[in-house]
Design a protein around this nucleic acid. Sequence first.
DNA 1: TTTGTTTATCGCCAATAGACGATTGGTTTA
DNA 2: TAAACCAATCGTCTATTGGCGATAAACAAA
Lengths: 114, 114
Amino acid sequence: MHSKTHRTFAIKNMKRSLGHIVYGKDTEALAKFAKALGHPTRIAILKHLENQSCCFTGDLVDVFPLAQSTISQHLKELKNAGLIQGELKPPKIKYCINHENWTMAKTLFQEFFD
Amino acid sequence: MHSKTHRTFAIKNMKRSLGHIVYGKDTEALAKFAKALGHPTRIAILKHLENQSCCFTGDLVDVFPLAQSTISQHLKELKNAGLIQGELKPPKIKYCINHENWTMAKTLFQEFFD
DNA sequence: TTTGTTTATCGCCAATAGACGATTGGTTTA
DNA sequence: TAAACCAATCGTCTATTGGCGATAAACAAA
């Protein structure tokens, strides 16, 4: 019944995390965005995208002293968080800010900081 | 000379990360704040602090279904990021938002999102 | 001084993250 | 078809994170 990845616990120790805690939707969403922003390379990539409006993976490989696979990995995480989107522009892939989610993130941070 | 925690590399493979990349101050700062916000429990703790204005570790242990040591760890990370500060109020410790850095973070996110 | 209360730290473990090189897959162009 | 190009994915490695219980440290009160 329990997920194999989590320990069981004695009843008298209840209150301990059973798997994981569920937070409000906004809390989860904000944490997800923040996590994606929690690496300087990804911040830098996004700043670059804001200037260029769009760009290709190859451009970034030239800009940052990182392996192509590493850049690709960061782009994947930004995409998973919904902050960017990739458009097939053969033979390249054009990455742009996802403005809808960008606005959502902006609003969430705004509200959070009052 | 190199930190032991980083590989060396062949000269012909230059362009690879020598230890780590140095980004602009704002980029680093923003990533650091974002990283601290990158866990829903820490978001929830901060929201709680915003409401309460201040609180003790013990209060949080009652609010969240997490071990005292886990809460303490999250508080430590928030403190390291500068988002909160602890005031000795024996025998307890009162945690509050660090308003100076809070404002700095707010501004950085604001600027980042345009 | 001893006891109780509160919080931080330690040690451990599983899971995740971040970096790399190498390989694969898809699309053009020769 | 073959060759070239670009980006994603795979496999591996190390470091970090997040959780826990147990222990230590700090201080108040008895």
